[in-house]
Amino acid sequence: MKALKLFWIFFRVGVLGELAYPANFFLQLFESLLDLGTALGGLAVVFAYTQTLGGWKPDEVLALVGVFFLVGGVIRLIIQPSLERLIEAVGEGTLDFTLTKPADAQFLVSIQSVEIWRCTDIVLGAIVLGAALSRLGTRVGPGRAAVFAAALLAGLVIVYSFWLILATLSFWLVRVQNILVIFQSMYEAGRWPVGLYPRWLRFALRFLVPVAFATTVPAQALAGRLSASALGAEAVLAVFLFGAARLFWRLGLRRYAGASA
């Protein structure tokens, strides 16, 4: 409960800070629309020549695009800005100010910065998802929707944990910013079903840079092609990775304390 309240306060501060620059909203909306137009244009060109892509129907790939924007929006709204600020704070030694606060430090650094206008990606993603759902029609019942929600949540936890592990590397390494670029490049591959890719790339998108769990897997759930065992495996991975990220963060923090003493 306290965590939720804290989150709300940080969120509000982020909003208030940005409200002074309303023009940024329109610029961000314009950029998000361009990005969406690119994705839809790509689909249009591809599906002008085929009915299915690797077993995916056009509406199912449309749903995937919606998920891709939704998850990308969440990452850029809060995960990326917050953890980039963490890396900066570790480099400059200003993390001390966060550590002296009487709340869980991992939680604080994970919500410390909100780029509110990035919500345009989330809203557009939701709209695309809604459009895809209405076209998929009655095939998506409450059961399938619940599986989708669970897969999406697990995917977000996996992506967050992965980002935290990368950002925590900054306790040991200097130029972690560059490693984050790897995630951003690889995330782009999530626009298409990872089943299309050759085995080595699929492996990389699952276990080296876990993009697939946050994009393809939830979309598979909507299409009704996600088995219970696959969902279970994703949930286990999410719990495991979250625990691992927490342990790693503690380890890094100990090192930070040691260095500043």
Partner: peptide, 12 residues
């Protein structure tokens, strides 16, 4: 990525 996507299209 586009090479793979178009390769899948040719297959279908």
């Amino acid at each position: 990525v586009f090479m793979i996507v178009w390769s899948a299209v040719t297959l279908s």
